[in-house]
Design a protein around this nucleic acid. Structure first.
Lengths: 352, 352
DNA sequence: CTGAAAGCGCTTACAG
DNA sequence: CTGAAAGCGCTTACAG
């Protein structure tokens, strides 16, 4: 709630239960029961429809504050993410929003960094009965530590990245990360590449670790391995991808041999690699194949268009909401369905 | 509020005013006054700090439902947009979110299409005292008609596109659209182009009309004009941009002359044009300069990188929230500050 | 200045 | 089965 700020003009009070009751000539208790289709309420069909008609005629809509004060539930789910400008979070957001709507819930938006900065906002959101539950995006250095405080007081679902909270206190919903990079690696191997490099996310990121694991496992399956000198860690950004390739190219300078294909830890890194490759005079895919985790609409429009694997991020939002609303016990869910889907585009081909 | 769906486990009730009052040995009325820094409450400094200490020690956070039932205000602003996946809406969302947070308000998300489909959700959001006010994105065929219903009961700010609602009932915040395309046009003219084409948005879009007007006015200033055969209308999408260029190229087939530069109605259209140009064997910028409205991070990474003008969308979100929270009278605000900013990149150059 | 009390609009045991 | 009444946790005239 606010405190400091002037407020919008107060609205006129709307139609309330008492108005409907008066119009229908019954008690407000009965109206409440009928409107909430309480099975105990067995008013005659005629009375029932009189109530329903009156409610409709008056345009009755329950006052959400009064209702939630009574039932201790307010129809709001908090969604707390890292960075709204990433296309990744958008898919999550869309999934969560659609599923919430299907349950007549609305989504309240929070931003990790802001919540860390503004303790008051944090408390209002978490302790003020502001929301019925919270979906938080894990994998943020500073915020991960606070998740446990949240889980103390609110049903909590951590999405996107495993977090340090004990398994029985918060649910966890994440994509099958290794499966995604496994699919990318298998694709490259099937093209005939035998030496594959990785521009990973930050080395302390659990998500990055899982993705790297997928690459390693697919390589191992083929009797190959990911060489240490073919792996570099970078920010989850285009600049990170650019710096990552710069670093690899520097390593290649004195070497006899180099990878013929690169996997990017996410699509932003992939975009950065594409740009950096041009700077270094490396033609993609002729000199170097490139592919990335996350399929966003932009991949299609890059030059060359970017081969990528899509993770079920929309579904992650959907499942997170379901877990919050339906589940009785916190669970750890790895989304294996739909499986990661490979979108082959122009940035990958057989090695020269 | 929900009705149909099982709900998350009820949380234990938290610390309430009565607990603080008991701990401090005063009435709950006094606690309420001190905590809300009611100037009338002149408890001795000692009492005051006893209250404050007790509240802090117990971790008191006001119950938002009870509070809003009393004061008829709930600290929530609804933001209703067309399509969450567009980078344009994201900037608006970010601005609105940040400014809301500064006022201790949270944002509740709505989707235009979904609200049109789900009348119940619409009523809860609009009539159920769910939010204190609504920021809606104008320019949506179906939804624009509903805005007037909303403005009847809720403080309303229309952003992004002028809407048919009478000026005194809803505020209006939009960028200076003509100024944006004027800047693009002036840029092209300064490069030496004299015939400029336009792949506009839909012909029935007010935003598209305003942007077209900017092009015309800048051309007129230079004693030139935008020819009808150089204008084509398209969806606000990459596919639209692609179709737009296809159409223009078809027109050029039999013609002696054609534009040497194209302005795209938005960045998605611009991206589509870039792709279509490649298909048609047109080199950008050598054969054709291309630039667009809206500067998003992706423009930098396209090939060639895309010259664009940025509109103050973040600021639009900020101003919309301020208008909602502070203003006493609905206003029509055209954002002239910051002015549209031109980002010159590789997609524009002097004609051959 | 402070406290007791009313009341915001609902739901839900509890009687009848 | 239905209604009268209590109560959810606050704020705010109204007395004192």
């Amino acid at each position: 709630m606010d405190g400091s700020t002037p407020s919008p003009a107060r609205r006129p009070v709307g139609v309330k239960l008492a108005d409907v009751a008066a119009a229908a000539g019954v008690s407000i208790a009965l109206v409440s029961r009928v409107l909430n289709s309480d099975p105990a309420a067995r008013a005659t069909p005629e009375t029932k429809s009189r109530i329903l008609d009156a409610a409709r005629a008056l345009g009755y809509v329950p006052n959400v504050a009064a209702k939630s004060l009574r039932v201790r539930r307010n129809g709001l789910i908090g969604l707390v993410v890292h960075d709204l400008s990433s296309p990744i979070h958008l898919e999550l957001l869309r999934g969560a929003r659609t599923e919430s709507a299907a349950h007549n819930y609305f989504l309240v938006l929070g931003d990790v960094d802001e919540l860390l900065d503004d303790e008051e906002a944090f408390k209002i959101l978490v302790n003020g009965n502001r929301v019925d539950g919270l979906i938080v995006q894990g994998g943020h250095r500073g915020f991960d530590e606070r998740i446990s405080d949240i889980a103390d007081v609110l049903p909590t679902v951590i999405v996107n990245a495993p977090s340090p909270v004990e398994r029985d206190r918060a649910a966890n919903v994440s994509p099958d990360e290794p499966a995604g990079t496994r699919a990318l690696t298998a694709h490259l191997l099937s093209l005939g590449h035998t030496r594959v490099g990785l521009v990973s996310g930050p080395s302390d990121s659990m998500t990055a670790t899982l993705r790297e694991r997928g690459v390693r496992s697919a390589m191992a399956d083929a009797g190959l391995q990911l060489l240490e000198r073919d792996v570099v860690y970078a920010d989850w950004s285009a600049d990170g991808g650019r710096a990552g390739l710069d670093e690899l190219v520097a390593r290649w300078a004195g070497a006899a041999d180099r990878p013929t294909a690169l996997i990017a830890g996410n699509s932003l890194i992939g975009i950065g690699i594409l740009g950096a490759a041009r700077s270094h005079g490396l033609a993609v895919p002729d000199d170097l194949s490139v592919c990335a985790v996350h399929d966003t609409w932009i991949n299609e429009h890059l030059v060359p268009s970017l081969t990528a694997v899509s993770l079920p991020l929309y579904e992650m939002g959907v499942v997170a909401v379901r877990q919050l609303l339906d589940a009785t016990v916190p669970r750890e869910i790895v989304l294996t369905d739909p499986p990661p889907m490979l979108h082959v585009r122009a940035s990958t081909r057989s090695p020269a």
